[in-house]
């Protein structure tokens, strides 16, 4: 097209100060900008909200239907297999007399506080072990052993030491969660790519700079995984402690409600308690750990785990 050609010519005449060097540089800059645009990631594909919400809800509906079916098969023995409707009725009753809310609040408070205690103890211990290979060789196997040890095993000892008090519950929770947090931090530090440490050396990082600015941020995903597992252990240990240690000055938690249901031979109350324990676990995962993990991984360009 003659018009566009003359336009280019005019542009060239308009900038007579251009030296060849400037031209080459401009050229390079433009070429790079073109390549950059061509190679850059386009907007990430996001799964529609529909499938993210519909799939879990569909699963829930299917499970409840299956449960109802089971209840029909066992219909003369409602005391053994109460259906969803009976359990819902019992839950309403427990809500009205305040027992369910009290149990959830008490357990949640203990679980969170116990977890935070474990966090406060496990993190510095993990850092210490990460910093000292000698100490780690000595203590590491013990930590891994404690992680495998079911924390219920601590309940009798805790009762002997602390009696039927909240200290017993917290002791069991801390013993259950701390090893996971320590090991999560350690595995996070272990899996820091050696390249990052070399980078620290090359950049002239001091030991403390290397730790704070490179190793610990790099270890964050492993640490978070450890925290997640630590929370799971907290919650499980708490239930174990609450079921076994009832009475004294110990408050009324979900484990206590479970135990009460057993004493009353009420499968409906037991089902309510199990469901409440499950729901708290899911809610904490969905509200706390899943978003934290998603944010952390997305910032680093790592795909978050499937199903979220």
């Amino acid at each position: 097209m003659p018009t566009s050609q003359s336009a280019t010519a005019t542009a060239a005449v308009d900038t007579p100060t251009d030296t060849p060097i400037d031209n080459r540089l401009e050229n390079l800059k433009e070429l790079e900008a073109g390549l950059d645009h061509l190679q850059e990631d386009t907007a990430p594909v996001r799964r529609p909200v529909a499938t993210r919400l519909l799939l879990p809800l569909g699963t829930l509906a299917a499970l409840v239907s299956l449960w109802q079916l089971l209840a029909w098969f066992a219909s003369p023995r409602v005391d053994l297999v109460p259906g969803p409707i009976e359990v819902l009725g019992t839950a309403a009753g427990l809500l009205v007399d305040g027992r369910l809310a009290e149990a959830v609040a008490t357990s949640l408070q203990r679980g969170v506080l116990g977890f935070l205690l474990a966090l406060g103890i496990g993190t510095p211990l993990g850092l210490l072990l990460a910093a000292s290979p000698l100490l780690r060789r000595g203590v590491g196997p013990l930590v891994s052993g404690l992680q495998v040890l079911p924390s219920v095993a601590w309940v009798p000892a805790a009762i002997i030491w602390f009696g039927l008090t909240d200290a017993t519950v917290y002791f069991v929770v801390v013993m259950g969660a701390t090893p996971s947090i320590i090991n999560g931090l350690l595995s996070g530090v272990d899996t820091v790519p050696p390249q990052y440490r070399r980078l620290g050396t090359v950049l002239g990082a001091s030991r403390i700079q290397g730790l704070l600015r490179i190793v610990l941020p790099a270890a964050l995903p492993g640490y978070l995984a450890g925290l997640k597992q630590g929370w799971a252990f907290s919650w499980r240990s708490l239930m174990a402690a609450e079921i076994i240690a009832v009475g004294g000055s110990i408050g009324f938690g979900l484990g206590s409600l479970l135990q009460q249901g057993r004493d009353l031979s009420s499968m409906a109350v037991v089902s309510c308690a199990i469901l409440a324990i499950l729901v708290v676990g899911i809610v904490i995962e969905l509200l706390v750990f899943a978003p934290a993990e998603r944010r952390l991984l997305r910032r680093r360009g790592l795909a978050p785990g499937a199903g979220r």
């Binding site: 390249q195 990052y196 070399r198 980078l199 950049l203 002239g204 990082a205 700079q209 600015r213 490179i214 941020p217 790099a218 964050l220 910032r299 680093r300 360009g301 790592l302």
Partner: peptide, 23 residues
Amino acid sequence: FQDAALLPWLTARANIELALEMR
């Protein structure tokens, strides 16, 4: 390095600032 060895949790600018900080 052969692979750029940029720290993935930092922006491009923060990666460069890190080198300046350590200097």
